[in-house]
Amino acid sequence: MKVILELFGASRDLSDKDFLEFNIEKKISIKDFKKKIITYVDENFKGNKNYKKIIETSSFCSQDNNIISENYNITKDQKIGIIPPIGGG
């Protein structure tokens, strides 16, 4: 299945596009999806520690704009948003 990770805030530095695309074989929890993103950083940014920290401290949101827990399972093609630590205003 295809999971589109929509990028926001500091995570935008992970790509020139607004998203990253992952091909994943079977259902995956957010906890394990995070590991996939960290692997992406290892492979594409030589394990950049700052980028890894961003991922580790981020929350994630579903397509219907709800924050989802680490136990949430992705079971089909969908968009997931990464929500790094916030600070607007």
Binding site: F8, A10, C61, P84, I86, G87, G89
Partner: peptide, 13 residues
């Protein structure tokens, strides 16, 4: 309102 926005609204600088 401003304090809650700082805590809860996904906005980045």
């Amino acid at each position: 309102i401003i304090e809650e926005i700082k805590k809860r609204s996904p906005i980045w600088k």
